[in-house]
Write a protein that binds this DNA or RNA. Structure first.
Lengths: 191, 191
DNA sequence: GCGTTTTAGTTAGCAAGCGAACGAACCTTC
DNA sequence: GAAGGTTCGTTCGCTTGCTAACTAAAACGC
């Protein structure tokens, strides 16, 4: 790290690269802080994501979401939803129901126990978040939020684009020449 | 730290909370973009982290790091290091060596094949990063970097503090009263 | 009505993160 | 030198994310 803040912009080789690196770093840190926090309520961050989404929908008066809806809300894929919801169901915090219309979709709603947990977490939430973000002043937080939103707006389409393509090299037990399998359509990065 | 009784924010949609939420969101997005990218070289983001760290140390002329060193560089725990390094070793991208002195530590260094991969990734790196961060202008990137660093500086001690304590409720098959096991030292959040 | 395609969700299998528990080597202290 | 503790790394078992492959129901096409 250690690069003097003074002449940062001019001499610093690549702010973009550094930003990415630090970002990745914070990602890990964040998980490591969030995990024990939610563990105190007996849940994981991912489970909290589901519970909070359900709770919000409930208080908004909306119908219980299907698994697919949850997936797009939380930006995770169907198998992940199945897993997390399954565990929450086993814990008794939510219930799968099969609504009338479509016979292949399942809806998910909170149990009383689930609502109880949400309440408990929410009671501490502002305080906890405040603690987490206390490294930034209020205006900085606002700016941070703005930048994050711009990042999302830019990256989300990129992520979606990756969906359909680019399975790539199978190094697992590739010989010395393993990599070049990328050949052919090298320029996925395009312009 | 949290000394701002700033209730101006309370009525608005809470920037701190929103920032946290969006941050979590970008975290997922970032993984989804990085994974297929590195897959094109036959590796994963975590593996890239290790390879890059080794490469840097090498070109700085430093001695090959021990597994523990890698762990603290990458902010991951020993079992994770074991796993990632093990897979990289099986792929033939790095080698474990047992240096003279301490018989219980292992050092890790790149193989030629590993160096080759690093080179390939680096060749594309600026371009890829540029694409990722293209949602922000150069000054915004610099500001983003600055905020990230402040976040790290603030959160890292928090994460470390969590290390020794707070295992928490075992909901897995907890009865209706599962949560209160947190009892006793409720105020881990302290003040 | 029947065949095809699309959509919802699950399953299997892998990587990466963690905590807990452990063996082995090292260090400290008597 | 032996006892006790610390440190390094591994293994086990778990959650969460993914892809690929699959089933079942719905929707479309003719």
């Amino acid at each position: 790290m250690a690069r003097h803040p003074h002449r940062a912009t001019s001499s610093s080789p690549r702010p973009a690269e550094a930003a990415f690196r630090e970002f990745w770093r914070v990602t890990g840190l964040l998980r490591r802080v969030a995990e024990p926090h939610f563990a105190r309520f007996g849940i994981s961050p991912a489970q909290w994501g589901v519970l909070r989404a359900l709770s919000r929908r409930e208080s908004a008066g909306d119908a219980p979401p299907r698994l697919t809806d949850l997936g797009s809300l939380l930006l995770v894929r169907p198998p992940t939803v199945t897993g997390v919801v399954g565990r929450l169901e086993r814990m008794g915090l939510l219930a799968r129901t099969t609504p009338g219309g479509d016979q292949r979709s399942r809806c998910v709603c909170l149990t009383d126990e689930g609502r109880r947990v949400v309440k408990q977490v929410l009671a501490r939430h502002p305080r906890w978040i405040g603690q987490l973000m206390a490294g930034l002043t209020a205006p900085e937080q606002a700016e941070f939020l703005r930048l994050l939103r711009r990042m999302i707006a830019h990256v989300e389409p990129l992520a979606e684009r990756m969906d359909g393509q680019g399975p790539a090299a199978d190094r697992t037990r590739a010989g010395p020449g393993g990599v070049k399998k990328t050949g052919g359509g090298v320029d996925v990065t395009s312009a």
